[in-house]
């Protein structure tokens, strides 16, 4: 498969922290300027036009990114990139690299990992790692 170079750890990261393409776009936008504190309107304004996300959706997504230890909020509800560990930071770097180099593969993988029940059927045929 063309996406076979993605490690298991990266797939797990996507599965748990990046459930959809808009969340990936959001995370990568924040990640590109790691020192910047973003307000919500700024974020929504700078997302690519084709990203389909509502204001409420963005709030929910940011909260879930925070709970995964990827961003932090200040008292004024502004948000900044902050990976809780070096391992997480490395995964976000991988994500950014994949997004630039193989966006179609990445997007397909995000969709694929979302369909976990269907995937569980295919994974049932693996002998190891259960």
């Amino acid at each position: 498969m063309e996406d076979s170079a993605f490690s298991e750890a990266f797939c797990r990261f996507i599965q748990t922290a990046v459930p959809s393409v808009p969340v990936a776009e959001l995370l990568l936008l924040i990640f590109k300027q790691p020192e910047r504190w973003w307000t919500l309107p700024e974020l929504l304004g700078e997302l690519p036009r084709d990203v389909n996300i509502t204001e409420a959706g963005a709030v929910t997504s940011l909260e879930s990114l925070r709970s995964r230890g990827l961003v932090e909020f200040d008292d004024n509800k502004r948000v900044r990139y902050r990976a809780a560990s070096d391992a997480l930071d490395a995964q976000v770097h991988t994500l950014a690299q994949a997004y630039n180099e193989r966006p179609v593969t990445l997007i397909r993988m995000i969709y694929a990992l979302r369909d976990t029940r269907i995937q569980s059927f295919a994974d049932a045929f693996k002998f190891r790692k259960r």
Partner: peptide, 15 residues
Amino acid sequence: IAIVDKNVSSGKSTR
């Protein structure tokens, strides 16, 4: 064959 393939290629992610 698909089951064998699944396990041979499972070192990397086949997703």
